[in-house]
Simulated assay, not measured.
Amino acid sequence: MAEKLTQEKVSELEKYAQSIRYSIVEMVTEAQSGHPGGSLSAADILTTLYFAEMNVNPSDPQAVGRDRFVLSKGHAAPVLYATLAERGFFPKEELLTLRKIDSRLQGHPSMKNLPGIDMSTGSLGQGLSAAAGLALAARLDNSESRVYTVLGDGELEEGMVWEAAMFAAHYKLDNLTAFVDFNGLQIDGPISEVLSPLPIPEKWTAFNWHVILVDGHDIQAIYDAVQTAKTIKGKPTMIVAQTIKGKGVCQMENIADWHGKAPSREQCDLFLSQLNELEAE
């Protein structure tokens, strides 16, 4: 088991997460289009992976032995773009081209356009299958690389997710670690009312995955769960991360309406000032 992160490292990662949230709000406002709520809720997960765990190199984004990441909830592309830019895969200034004509940053991630993206995603339910395929390929190549993926909790309503869950367990893909961004809301409201996938941990346990339940905004807890996943043999791991939709912007938090709505310029200025205050604390 790897050592715990130092408090200094945790503080550093929290600052990265706040910077990523700042970029999310700014870029979605500039585009006047996009999905801020579920991007903000996943920021701590991606920060932990890209800045404390994954073997990736912005100078060599196609390195053969790198770890892979699949954003299964592809509409949350702003969090992936902001994280990759923060990590140095491309200039942060490019974030403001989100969803514009000829931009490399379209509404859903494309592996053909932007360095650091390992799988094009967007149609919900497909990302876990892609991640499982990457994990099986790594095993066949005798590679030590690991595969990570993030699913939305509303996405669990897609049947293909559960086919992939069976596949990954059947092939004992212990080099695969998945997250559910469990913020409880989807575009039409609470997941429990739209088409309930609850109880989430018990379902993944029944599909023969190792399951860990964490606070999805506690970077140390996320990091510890990832370290535990690396010790599990013979089955994939699902980290169920309990999060807050719109995390970091109080007017967005736990409000389904912010699933796919862009702030006005005035709202953006208010939200960015909030994030600046949080970062200064």
Rank of each mutant, 00 (worst) to 15 (best):
residue 102 D to T: 14
residue 48 T to Q: 03
residue 123 S to P: 08
residue 191 I to F: 01
residue 170 H to W: 07
residue 196 S to G: 02
residue 265 R to E: 11
residue 214 V to M: 09
residue 154 G to Q: 01
residue 231 T to K: 15
residue 130 A to C: 08
residue 40 L to E: 07
residue 144 E to R: 13
residue 183 N to P: 04
residue 109 P to V: 02
residue 104 R to C: 12
residue 266 E to T: 05
residue 178 A to D: 10
residue 247 K to W: 14
residue 269 D to Y: 00
residue 26 E to D: 13
residue 231 T to D: 14
residue 219 I to A: 12
residue 189 G to C: 08
residue 208 N to D: 12
residue 190 P to H: 12
residue 181 D to S: 12
residue 255 I to G: 00
residue 244 I to D: 06
residue 23 S to F: 07
residue 2 A to P: 07
residue 195 L to K: 08
residue 4 K to R: 12
residue 206 A to L: 01
residue 65 G to W: 05
residue 133 G to I: 10
residue 52 A to P: 09
residue 163 E to T: 02
residue 271 F to M: 15
residue 17 A to R: 09
residue 241 A to Q: 12
residue 269 D to P: 00
residue 111 M to C: 14
residue 203 K to L: 11
residue 14 E to F: 08
residue 186 Q to H: 00
residue 83 T to G: 09
residue 57 N to V: 02
residue 251 Q to P: 06
residue 163 E to P: 03
residue 233 K to N: 14
residue 4 K to W: 03
residue 170 H to A: 08
residue 88 G to D: 06
residue 269 D to K: 06
residue 26 E to K: 12
residue 47 T to P: 11
residue 238 M to K: 08
residue 278 L to G: 05
residue 260 G to R: 01
residue 246 G to S: 03
residue 10 V to P: 01
residue 216 G to M: 09
residue 262 A to V: 00
residue 19 S to F: 13
residue 214 V to C: 08
residue 177 T to E: 04
residue 255 I to V: 13
